[in-house]
Simulated scan of single mutants.
Amino acid sequence: MAVPSPAYEEQLKAYEGRAATVAGVGKDPVNEPMIRHWCEAMGDTNPAYSGPDAMAPPTMLQVWTMGGLSGHTGRSEAYDELFALLDGAGYTSVVATDCEQEYLRPLRPGDEITFDALIESVSGRKTTKLGTGYFVTTRMDLRAGGELAGTHRFRILKYAPAQRKRAEQSSPKDRRTEQPSPKDRTNPKSRRPRPVINRDNAGFWEGVARHQLLIQRCAGCRVLRFPWLPGCNACGCLEWDTVEASGDGTVYSYVVMHHPPFPAFDPPYAVGLVELSEGVRMVSNVVGVPYDKVRIGMPVRLEFQRYDEELELPVFRPGGTGEGGGG
């Protein structure tokens, strides 16, 4: 793709500061049913989100502004014009990259939400692994009863997809024969990505190194939680200890990955949401069975699989009575 002219980029920059939505009104006031559905979906049992003095989870901030299929009144044409300008230059693909939220006051059932949104910034031309394009950031200011309650920034990348290498454009059958062998995967360039280890989850990975699957247990309410968190999402207690999982579980749900080949992976393969016998759930690979034979309800058993000299991960293999059942 040709490098855009300075005049084109000036056109894009001219959209910075233009309104995307003016005097938008939330279609529903903050309400208990939506809070309950959110908490059930997230598995969040914090008592602050229920009862007569309930507040909405802060991360629901954008929920109260969603327009649904019919959209919102007050929407300006600036956003559509900017997209048309990018589409016309070949930047036709879009991917959400990140969002930032700032919470200024809690939202409670009955609060009426109003909001304004503007195009805060359009980056210069950037080259990424997905392709070349522009990052567009939209800022939304939310108010409850006329008082600023929070700010939501949402960033997307509008881009022209990168040209795939010739080998990646071959047929799926051909690509499968080009997958590296297990021996080849010891090459650093084809190793699996390393897990992100920080002070909140270091204990979990120390357990994995000892072939132990450790689950956090709140020292206050004794509720088990997974993945690891710095504090209890049920009672807020910051103290905790651990229990070792027995290793027994069942497939609660699963997906089959068919994404384009990546040196460290060999699609298609199954990724399961496994419910452990202790009651918590974790995401991991289901191995030792064809991907199209994985079933919801299938009993599985923990094992630790080594991928290279530095990386060993907990995975699950079918096992126990009823293996292969479910539907």
Results as ranks from 00 to 15, higher is better:
V3I: 13
P4S: 06
P4D: 04
P4I: 09
P6E: 13
L12N: 00
L12D: 00
L12S: 00
E16T: 00
G26L: 03
G26H: 00
K27M: 03
E40V: 13
D44S: 03
P47F: 01
Y49E: 07
L61D: 03
V63H: 10
W64H: 03
T65M: 09
G68K: 02
T73H: 05
T73E: 12
A78V: 04
Y79G: 07
D80V: 10
D80C: 13
E81I: 02
L85S: 07
L85H: 04
L86Q: 02
G90K: 05
Y91E: 04
S93P: 02
V94H: 11
T97I: 10
E100S: 12
E102P: 08
L104V: 14
R105E: 11
L107F: 12
L107D: 08
E112P: 06
T114C: 06
L118S: 07
L118F: 11
I119V: 04
E120K: 06
R125A: 07
T128M: 10
Y134G: 02
T137E: 12
T137S: 07
G146E: 01
H152Q: 08
R155W: 08
Y159L: 05
P161I: 01
P161F: 00
Q163Y: 11
Q163L: 15
R164M: 12
Q169P: 08
Q179T: 08
Q179V: 07
P180R: 10
D184L: 14
N198C: 12
R199D: 11
F204T: 00
E206Q: 07
G207A: 01
G207D: 01
V208T: 03
V208C: 06
G220F: 00
C221I: 06
C221Y: 11
R222Q: 05
V223D: 03
P227C: 02
L229Q: 03
L229T: 06
P230F: 03
C232P: 03
C235I: 13
C235S: 13
C237Q: 11
T242L: 00
T242N: 01
T250C: 06
H258M: 08
P267F: 10
V271R: 03
V271H: 05
V271E: 05
G272R: 09
V274W: 04
E278S: 09
V280I: 11
M282D: 00
P299F: 08
Q305G: 08
Y307T: 05
D308F: 05
E310R: 13
E312M: 14
P314A: 07
V315H: 15
R317E: 10
G319Q: 06
